[in-house]
Design a protein around this nucleic acid. Structure first.
Lengths: 144, 144
DNA sequence: ATAATAAAAGACAAAAATATCTTTTATTAG
DNA sequence: CTAATAAAAGATATTTTTGTCTTTTATTAT
């Protein structure tokens, strides 16, 4: 569905949203451990998200990652778009570049509906909203 | 969403369903041309589908690929399962192996619904059903 | 100022997915 | 039986994705 990079990105962002604020930043090691991902790999991904303004970071002692108010309002769909692009929301299910309303692939119309629902759900899922459930341990970000 | 391999597989199978029967088989070259895919690559994919009984083939002059009655009754979901496996239908949206009802990831419940709809739609889409629309040119399998 | 810390950046490596080319095997028509 | 045809199989190449390791830069505390 999503690339591994994107899965890590989503998990990391939810983790950061939950574990940090402007005063208490969270480091790469803790993130990698918390979401069960390779440390340097998630580092790269967060660099990328940082350049694109999705997450804030500072270097040095007590440095790390955190989310500004703005960032907490972003949705999972925003992260996905930044990492994997939006072909999952708009591309043809069969990979046809010219697939369109006028020239639909055999599953175009049905697909459109399912995709719209997925997008709606991912747009609605704001990062800030996950903090509570994680604290209460009703959802999980790790394999074990 | 699906791998390229899987997209080619679906397009090829729909193409074969439409273009062939037991008497009039369709060759790899024609398929590759018809769905705009690399010839040898779709060859490999069809070999695989053939081994798994999803498509019939014969060698030699007038040989090629065709679908038996059984095969015409298969759904796009069947093809996807054979090529990409069923993690798209059952796997966690965030790639967590241990994600479950008891230990759900943050988007588990919403995702489950969207995925179920997608699966239902793909299960309902039988290969045999596409032949008519393609003949009538209301759907397309090529980029241009 | 200096040392310690932590992210940023760059280089490199491994694995998987995608694609191509060549040889072999089965079938058919002549 | 032979030549032609077409898929099957095998080998290899390329590209993309995923992952690791090392060096650099920025920040902080002492």
């Amino acid at each position: 569905m999503f690339s591994k990079t994107c899965e890590y990105a989503i998990r990391a962002m939810i983790f950061i949203a939950q574990k940090s604020d402007e005063e208490n930043k969270v480091g790469i090691k803790e993130i990698a451990q918390g979401i069960d991902s390779p440390e340097h790999f998630i580092g790269k991904i967060l660099q990328d998200l940082s350049r694109k303004g999705m997450v804030q970071s500072t270097k040095g002692p007590n440095g790390g990652f955190y989310l500004s108010g703005d960032a907490l309002n972003r949705s999972l769909a925003d992260i996905i778009k930044v990492i994997d692009g939006d072909k999952i929301f708009h591309g043809c299910g069969l990979g046809l570049k010219q697939c369109s309303e006028a020239q639909p692939c055999p599953i175009h119309h049905e697909f459109k509906q399912v995709r719209a629902q997925m997008q709606a759900m991912l747009e609605k899922a704001k990062l800030g909203a996950f903090t509570e459930e994680l604290v209460q341990k009703v959802t999980f970000l790790k394999r074990n």
